[in-house]
Amino acid sequence: MRGCFAPTRTAAQGVPQWGLLYTGGRSVGIGSPREGPPSTPDDERELHARLLAGDETAPSDLARAYLGPLTTWLSRAFPREDSHLIESVVIDLISALAKAPARYDPERGSLSGYLRMAARGDMQNALRSEQRRTRRQLPLEDVELSQAAGKLLVGSPRDPADVVADRDTIDPATVGRLRAGFDDVEWEVVQLMGEGERRTSVFARVLGLEALPPAEQERAVKRVKDRLKKRLQRHWPQVRGDD
């Protein structure tokens, strides 16, 4: 089903709602602050096409749709980092994509996935810059130099999810040892946890639990996540060689 972006208005106030008005009768909001990003691949393609076409309202829709969710996601992926820095990274990323939408290729994946990946990369770059600035100020015993990657690992992550969220900054051999402790499905769940995913339905799909009633799905997903968190906690010191 194809849709087109069009303003819709509340009858009482005549306030534009920045929605996706579907000719088929389904109306999918893309922009109000409490609504999430475009919910289907078609919505995302539509928004991207409008950016490419130079639609003046598309950058606003992009910002309204993704600023909040992406900031939330990045805050979860980097829970110890400065919220101001996180917001700046997200704002700059969104405005950069609004100005150069061709940098995203819809054939290579979803827009939300692209934004998350880009946000993670931009955040890591920002942190590396920060690390370079503060490197000489750190006590030597707190700094572990990863010779393979030439990157710094500082201290131990407090939350096992951080391990996965920060996996791109950890040397590949360490990630490989960590990965070896899980099967494919478990690793996918671990990655989702690290990315801050919270929707039960997403975990249920990965775990093949979609047939279960929602309440049961929720319990089963929670069980799996708790178990994996404990395993991560046990596994991480061994992987790091702390034991």
Partner: peptide, 22 residues
């Protein structure tokens, strides 16, 4: 920071960028 605050912050941040209406 609420999403609305975030939008305001974004609008202020692009205030000098001629691409944006801000």
């Amino acid at each position: 920071m609420t999403d609305h605050d975030l939008l305001w912050r974004a609008a202020r941040r692009v205030a000098d960028d001629p691409f944006f209406l801000a």
